[in-house]
Nucleic acid binder design. Structure first.
Lengths: 254, 254
DNA sequence: GGCTAAACTTGATTTATATCAAGTTCTGGC
DNA sequence: GCCAGAACTTGATATAAATCAAGTTTAGCC
């Protein structure tokens, strides 16, 4: 099955789908990206006991909707998801993409209400972290408390970086930076960083980066012409990482 | 003295400058915006004991620099400050403005390093919250832990909203939304929301919103022509809050 | 109280990117 | 293996806002 193959390629050990749904934090291949960083074994077990593992979400399945009360944060185990709001005309406004090891729903903590919709872009496994239990556990385990604060701080950092990107950079710098950013996130989870599948459509990328799809298409072509990357169907192949990074950072007045 | 007058107008009780530097969390007029929300008296006292009150920062004084280790978060008591980074050419890129009751430096928690510069735009009083002590205290006081998480979540919410604003709205909607946002924040601290001083220059606003100063100037003029607001020197006078909000939210195709 | 630099204003011109229009290619379901 | 809808591509045109240029006003300083 396609699904099992996909999951296999995500995890180190070849395991059956059933096992992947049940796997514990202790043996989770992405735990170093997730919450259990630096926790003692007993503490991880404690955390593991509150985590609810969900059956895989299929493409277009919705995890939560705007306005729903916060029940759980979601840690992505495999696949990819997006968060989005709807504007006055009901048009989708994508606010984020989430890869394995990343936590969805942190913005809901302030007023116990989800601020966006979350939807799977692909078959995805997630762990649900019931927030009230997580909060209590954070009071008992100093390492978990610190880690939770760090994860939130990290999200604030990322948001500020995105802000600067959108506010100060032109279209090609945005797209280059977007690709570099995805690449770094794949590298972090131990996957190939110079060759990977784009989990979202170009329409989604355009929406997220505040550009027209046509512009995205033209710019991918331009980046290819410059021998910086190749895009075949949805597979990105970064040909010159260093120059692409440079391109993303500083304006290229050519 | 100008300073004392300014502080007086910010605080309920007329007090001497010396008192304001020493005032405790228990009697701080902005405490409901700051950390002590919902804490018991004894807990507030506990928090109060770690807060270091600083002499006022003068206009252009720097609180911390990019790359410095995180010592303290800063709670604004009066005045206004900005955070910014420098781009490759050394040009200032403003990432935020901070009003009384707001906390500066949350993005530094992830890797214990400040991610920006922070500078006073005006004579400003701040409380320094030593982070290691705050973290420990958060482990002892559940209400403080929750509040800290909520404040961080709230910052993430604000960042996402800003992201949507910059990504999806045109220049006049951005400016209108910026003014509305300031107005709401003044209202939150119990000050006039329809008539207030702009604490930053138009150059700073332009920088923050990713626009040219000329555009800001023209748009303020346009908003005035539409009888939505008045700008005299640095004093904003919102003439039609409802329409201005509407203007900020939905595109006005006129 | 006059001088200087910064802040702001106004108009003319340019430009990056959106929009419009009309394709082609890909993908999933029967 | 074919069909329909979605995704992507390509070119022509429009436009919002930047840039350039040259003011005027404001505010701090000796």
């Amino acid at each position: 099955m396609v699904l099992v193959d996909k999951l296999r390629s995500t995890d180190c050990k070849p395991t059956k789908l059933m096992d992947l749904e049940q796997i514990k934090c202790q043996s989770c291949s992405i735990s170093r990206l997730c919450l259990p960083v630096m926790l003692a074994d007993a503490e991880i077990e404690h955390l593991d006991s509150i985590v609810k593992r969900r059956k895989p979400y299929q493409k277009d399945d919705v995890l939560f909707r705007f306005g729903e009360p916060l029940q759980s944060l979601y840690a992505v185990r495999s696949g990819c998801l997006k968060t989005y709001t709807l504007d006055a005309d009901g048009i989708e406004q994508i606010t984020g993409f989430y890869l394995p090891g990343e936590i969805i729903g942190l913005d809901a903590i302030a007023n116990n209400t989800h601020q966006s919709f979350a939807k799977a872009l692909d078959t995805s496994l997630v762990c649900a972290l019931p927030y009230n239990k997580l909060d209590i556990l954070a009071g008992q385990i100093p390492g978990l408390r610190s880690q939770l604060l760090k994860i939130m701080s990290s999200e604030i950092q990322d948001d500020k970086a995105l802000f600067l990107l959108l506010n100060k950079k032109n279209a090609e710098q945005r797209l280059a930076a977007f690709v570099i950013n995805l690449s770094r996130r794949y590298a972090n989870r131990g996957l190939a960083s110079d060759r990977f599948q784009l989990p979202m459509t170009q329409v989604d990328i355009a929406n997220y980066l505040g550009m027209a799809v046509e512009t995205i298409s033209r710019l991918f072509k331009k980046l290819h012409k410059l021998d910086l990357l190749e895009l075949k169907q949805k597979e990105i192949n970064i040909l010159n990482m260093q120059q692409l990074s440079h391109f993303a950072g500083t304006s290229c007045h050519v």
